[in-house]
Amino acid sequence: MGRLSAAKPVLTTPAAAPTAEDSPLPMATEPAVPFIEIETLRAREFLPAAKEALGSLLSEQAQGKLIRPMFNWAGRNSLFPLHWGLACCAIEFAAAFGARWDAERFGVVPRSSPRQCDLLIVNGTVTWKVAHKLITLYEQMPEPKWVIAMGNCATGGGPFRTAYSVVPGVDKLVPVDVYIAGCPPRPEALLDGILRLEQLIKERKE
């Protein structure tokens, strides 16, 4: 809908409005906007219009049934978390990629560069000193992206809640999709959180 309303004003250019006011009865043969200009406008309009038509076709017919489920399937089956160890939970995070739990079974492969990640697992206590770096990392990740707050510290400050240097909950900084309780959560809990996130992605509508 937004795209439609954005495309419309192009037809009635501001140049046309004063002419209509100056002569309330314009001659029928004389268009308010010169013909050639209309043609240019139309030509300029073609691409967005075609794109929109295609998009709406896709959105109505295929997107709901084919494309969105397909991309959601891909997105939920290949979550690349950021390789970032904050505190205690990072050790359990690493253990989840160890031989016993092997999170790669679910297609979860940690990457070191935020540019290649789509999942930010906040695995530990976030202090105010690192807060803006966390936000930068989050912003460096390309859309679509998700955040898991792993452990009590990331969820709400944990045992360091009253400390002067600790962010009481990472949701003060970035939007969080899944909270995992535990101090630290066991690797099973992390896997469960990831599977819950997959469920969220599966039900995604946009």
Partner: peptide
């Protein structure tokens, strides 16, 4: 490494890389 690798996407994880590719295709290019 004494673990199993991709398992759950497709038979024995055969579709895992297709999922990765599709996901990366959908990601915002910047």
């Amino acid at each position: 490494m004494d673990r199993r690798g991709a398992m759950h996407v497709g038979y024995a994880g055969l579709l895992q890389n297709f999922a990765d590719g599709l996901k990366l295709f959908r990601k915002h290019t910047f």
